[in-house]
Computed example of a mutant assay.
Amino acid sequence: MNTDQRIEALKERFVRKFKEEATDVFSSPGRIELLGNHTDHNNGKVLVSTIDLNILAVASKRDDNRVVFYSKGFPKMTVTLSRLKLHENEYGTSVALIRGVLFKMKQLGYKIGGFNVVSDSTIFKGAGVSSSAAFEILIGKIISYYYNEDSIAAFKLAQIGQFAESVYFNKPCGLLDQSGIALGGINYIDFKYLVEPVIKNIKVKIPGYQFLLINTGDDHSKLTPCYAAIKDEMAMVSHYFGQKVLREVDEEEFYKHIDEVEKKTSHRAVLRATHYFEENKRVARAYEALTVNDFKTFFKMMDESGLSSYNNLQNCYVESEEEKLPQALKFVKTLKGEIYSRVHGGGFAGTMLVVIADKDFEENYNILVEKYGKNNVMRVALTENGTCHL
């Protein structure tokens, strides 16, 4: 179904569920991480873009201080505004995200209130396209629109979403996903100062290439301990230098003392810190390349990022290189033509990002579809809009 057909179907379902018509339509997109793999949680640099996968929602206000949410394929969710404390038994659930967003908005002094929602999504859960972040920012946007004159800034919504995911959902995360989705378009973000990061929207089209997300067959939604270990091991290195995050560590000092750091931490922690420092430089170079339409350099940096994620960050498999994601990453490297690839998102399982030049696309697309199935090889387009009221 196209967007108009989806909206019409959602409106019909809304009437069946609530016995009244929806008054508003909202959209919250997925995102792809172009570069900046696991740098955001250490105040690093990222390149992120929204894509044409999204959550569509039809909604209306209600006056009994409840949020009632129907999401296609999930049971009914209800949150009462007088009961916003954290519930540990809700960890990992969408209800936790609703409750967390509402709690943080109230804590920050924003007005909150009830609403009804019926939604569907083309963002596939657990495959690295940030379905949870899109959901969080959607909730924040609805509250902003209905109760705060749509005045809450995009980055503030991102910070609220990050809180909900880290605390109420119990999944540690940086700000890349939420920021990219709230802002919309291609954005270079430097998180050196979290309160006020440097955000540069890049007005650029990337002609002559097709972007693919390949779901390799494993769900990454249960891998929170693996993601937490990356952040913890980077923290071990930064703490060696008396700092909270790697961004505060002098890179020259790190390399100067690398042998001693490894003795005090671990070999993998040092590799992951090395990835962090080098990835920040790749992001900066890729950003500069995009600003002058130097797409070859941009894709070269993306490819190098993928190699670093595999070898240094080590987030391309959990226990064995025989797992589906590393095997897929290796398979794509055997294809002929101008092709770039990398693990996508948090890693360990799930999705990879592949970019193929138009001249080499048809043959390689057919090979990938034959190997992984048409439903697991998804063409995506970079888009300009973040979470919004339609």
Rank of each mutant, 00 (worst) to 15 (best):
G73K: 12
Q107H: 11
V167G: 01
E384D: 15
R31F: 06
T334Y: 00
V332Y: 11
S130K: 11
K106P: 01
N148D: 08
A96N: 12
E323H: 09
V369F: 01
L390E: 09
E12L: 15
V204I: 09
L35V: 07
P225G: 07
M302Y: 09
V270H: 06
N315L: 08
I142Y: 11
S320E: 13
K85L: 07
K359Q: 12
L335I: 02
L53N: 05
V204A: 09
G140C: 06
Y188S: 03
K11W: 06
P207I: 09
I199R: 11
G386H: 08
A96D: 12
F361N: 02
K76F: 02
Y372T: 08
A273E: 03
V167E: 15
T224S: 14
E288N: 15
G347C: 10
N315M: 07
L102N: 02
D250A: 06
A349E: 08
Q327A: 10
N54F: 13
G350A: 11
T265G: 01
E8F: 14
D52F: 04
I206W: 01
A357F: 03
I143W: 02
R379H: 13
F191D: 02
A153C: 03
H389K: 14
V377A: 04
N65L: 05
Q243V: 04
D63Y: 14
V67A: 02
F331H: 08
G337K: 10
G337C: 07
M77Y: 12
C226Q: 15
E323T: 01
T224N: 12
L368C: 07
G128V: 10
V354I: 08
K374C: 03
T291L: 14
L329G: 03
F135G: 03
I230E: 02
G161Y: 10
V354E: 04
Y188Q: 07
K104S: 00
R247K: 14
R247C: 02
N170H: 15
G347H: 11
A154H: 12
N54E: 15
E233L: 00
Q5T: 15
V25M: 06
E279I: 07
K336R: 14
Q210E: 14
A229D: 13
Y70G: 00
H275N: 06
E279T: 08
G208K: 11
N201V: 09
N187Y: 04
A153T: 04
V95M: 09
S71V: 09
G346N: 05
M105R: 04
C173T: 15
V343N: 01
S121K: 09
Q178C: 09
F74G: 00
